[in-house]
């Protein structure tokens, strides 16, 4: 109960804090979710994407 109370007092009591928390939380979740999905995606499609083969051709350019 006390955790819920602390949560209420810190984040919910003042509307300005509440709204800011929601916006910041949405932003943080968006970034985190994207990172998570991207790391899964990159593992699933390992070696197939352009970023996996790019180094072969960029190195050839530089020398």
């Amino acid at each position: 109960m006390s955790i819920a109370n602390t949560f209420y007092n810190v984040f919910v009591k003042r509307n300005s804090v509440y709204v800011t928390t929601i916006f910041a939380g949405a932003f943080a979740f968006g970034v985190g979710f994207d990172l998570g999905v991207t790391s899964f995606w990159d593992r699933w499609n390992q070696g197939k994407q352009w970023k996996d083969i790019r180094h072969k051709y960029v190195e050839a350019e530089s020398d």
Binding site: W41, W44, K48, I53
Partner: peptide, 16 residues
């Protein structure tokens, strides 16, 4: 196809 599955990207070496 290497891109057949619901989560499969294109094989970009093959595109090249």
């Amino acid at each position: 196809w290497s891109h057949k599955g619901l989560l499969d990207s294109f094989d970009h070496a093959s595109i090249r």
